[in-house]
Design a protein around this nucleic acid. Sequence first.
DNA 1: CCCGATATGCAACCAAAGGTTGCATATCGG
DNA 2: CCGATATGCAACCTTTGGTTGCATATCGGG
Lengths: 116, 116
Amino acid sequence: MSTAVDDDLWSAIGDPVRRTMIDLLLAGGPGTATSLSERLPVTRQAVSKHLAVLDRVGLVHSAPAGRERHYQVDQAQLARAVAQLSAVGTAWDARLRRIKRIAEAIERDRNNDQGE
Amino acid sequence: MSTAVDDDLWSAIGDPVRRTMIDLLLAGGPGTATSLSERLPVTRQAVSKHLAVLDRVGLVHSAPAGRERHYQVDQAQLARAVAQLSAVGTAWDARLRRIKRIAEAIERDRNNDQGE
DNA sequence: CCCGATATGCAACCAAAGGTTGCATATCGG
DNA sequence: CCGATATGCAACCTTTGGTTGCATATCGGG
């Protein structure tokens, strides 16, 4: 079951640029649109839009500091996003294992029939 | 470190409709664009486009069967995608723990300074 | 064998999202 | 006070997800 909020979280971290931005903010601490854009293949304005998206879903918080605006990751919300990721991952993983188990069962049955 | 192929995998499973499609294919076995669209809030044509995207990154395979075309999940590729998910998840998780540990260390130092 | 029903595929068209450039505004610092 | 720097806002372009309409192909009963 997926809620609208969860889908928002997913699409927020689904963008590769936004994932890299989160990486940079986690690795280097709080940063600005300008400082992030220096390490990304897109312009400051594009970064700014991505930050707005991340802010809207609560993955980052911002605070004005003079003429700059500092952004930092909301750790609780990111932890929640990580939980979403691993939830989908484990769900698919379980399905794959179940399918494999069934396939093996069928294989065994087929061998039995041939043996009769 | 992310490669172009990995980004393709990510963006493929980043779309909520495509994630649901994979869920449906895993739960119900092989299906067609028409059968999937009956359980999704989008038209058959939209589903068809999504299937083309999933096919292009190798997450599903298709085979014509009379007037139908059956799609099924490529288990190995999906397993790889799941690995990508959990890799990013654990990386962020590790960063979060490290940040928390550093914060606690700073807190301890501050208390020590006050004690001097 | 033929014809209606069903499953696809292809094309045109629309709206939202990601990206860019250009310009206006605000703050820092000598 | 003034130049340099950091943002914010707006217009515009391209890609992507979604739709409708139409043509094509196959299945099956009469």
